[in-house]
């Protein structure tokens, strides 16, 4: 059950003037007409959203595909009439050495972020599931990083990771580690944005996995501990297997969200130094908007490649959800 409606909907126990369960006889023709008017009403309620999706999703997306198939300059972008160039833009970006780097960084950024977010989120969820004094309050506080505007988190981390005056390097200095150039060295830039992204993603994983844990019947643990299973065995034999469906959804949603991450990386490193922390999302932005000579076509082409990747995981997500719904 989704918590959205588990969350305390208490319908009035008896609607005024309408005894429950009173049999209603509906003749055949009236029923069919009734069904047709309900269809009309249903689509009356849906039409605004359908029109909205058409105008504000489908059209910008179409524009984006169109952009990626034409050779645009700033002039033709404003005035129209850019020549059709077929797969030219895709060919150009796929053969750009920056593509390999961006793709590799996207994969590393996404997988490493998800791995740590999930493991830390799961450990915290199991911990909070013990139920102790203050647990609900502390769990709520854990949500803060996820709710802050990304620009706030990104600029805070930027200053914390500052080479000379950052508090992270100060902490490392106390334990005897020398200065790390988190954001200015090509070796560390990707690690830095991953650290910040893991921090932002932990709350999401914690909340979903926690609500999954709540659905595991406590009797199972009681039975297991009667059989002499210790904490780790209970986790391995009960918690983890029963949490698998929720874990799958968490990880897939995480994948879809993390592929899209742009703000954080752009604000912290702009994909740099060089292109050491550039991902498909930041590269697409850099091509389209990042310089005085915008390359809208190639930028849109990279964006469309990103959509394709996201849709693959999206398809997986839909399949898993369907299977769980049955």
């Amino acid at each position: 059950m989704t918590t959205a409606h588990a969350d305390g909907l208490k319908p009035p126990s008896a609607a005024p003037g309408a005894p429950h369960g009173q049999p209603r006889t509906v003749s055949g023709t009236a029923g069919r007409r009734g069904r047709r008017t309900t269809q009309l009403a249903a689509w009356g309620f849906l039409t605004p959203v359908a029109a909205y999706l058409g105008v504000f999703y489908a059209y910008p997306l179409y524009r984006n595909v169109d952009l990626s198939l034409r050779h645009y300059t700033v002039r033709s972008f404003v005035q129209g009439g850019a020549p059709f160039s077929g797969w030219g833009n895709f060919h150009q970006v796929l053969h750009d050495p920056a593509f390999g780097t961006a793709l590799r960084n996207t994969v590393v950024f996404t997988l490493v972020s998800i791995l740590f977010q999930y493991l830390i989120g799961l450990a915290l969820a199991v911990f909070f599931n013990r139920g102790f004094r203050l647990a609900p309050t502390l769990r709520a506080l854990f949500l803060i990083p996820w709710l802050l505007p990304l620009i706030v988190s990104a600029s805070t981390w930027s200053w914390m990771l500052n080479s000379e005056s950052g508090v992270v390097n100060y902490g490392l200095h106390l334990v005897g580690v020398g200065q790390v150039d988190w954001l200015t060295s090509p070796h560390w830039a990707l690690t830095s944005v991953i650290i910040a992204n893991v921090w932002i993603g932990i709350p999401f994983n914690l909340v979903i996995l926690y609500s999954g844990l709540q659905n595991i019947p406590t009797e199972l643990y009681e039975a297991a501990s009667l059989d002499g299973a210790n904490g780790w065995q209970q986790f391995r034999r009960i918690t983890f297997p029963l949490l698998r469906p929720v874990s799958a959804i968490t990880v897939l949603l995480g994948l879809i969200y993390t592929l899209k991450v742009f703000d954080l990386i752009w604000i912290m490193t702009k994909g740099g130094p060089g292109d050491s922390s550039s991902t498909l999302a930041t590269w697409s932005y850099r091509l389209g908007f990042g310089s005085l000579l915008p390359q809208f076509g190639p930028g849109a082409a990279v964006g469309n490649i990103l959509i394709l990747i996201a849709l693959v995981f999206g398809g997986l997500y839909v399949r898993i959800q369907r299977r769980q719904a049955i």
């Binding site: 910008p60 952009l67 899209k260 697409s284 964006g303």
Partner: peptide
């Protein structure tokens, strides 16, 4: 919900 914001942004920019 799966379409990256950056792609939507580029489409909106044109429009």
């Amino acid at each position: 919900q799966m379409i990256p914001g950056i792609v939507m942004a580029m489409g909106f920019y044109g429009v």
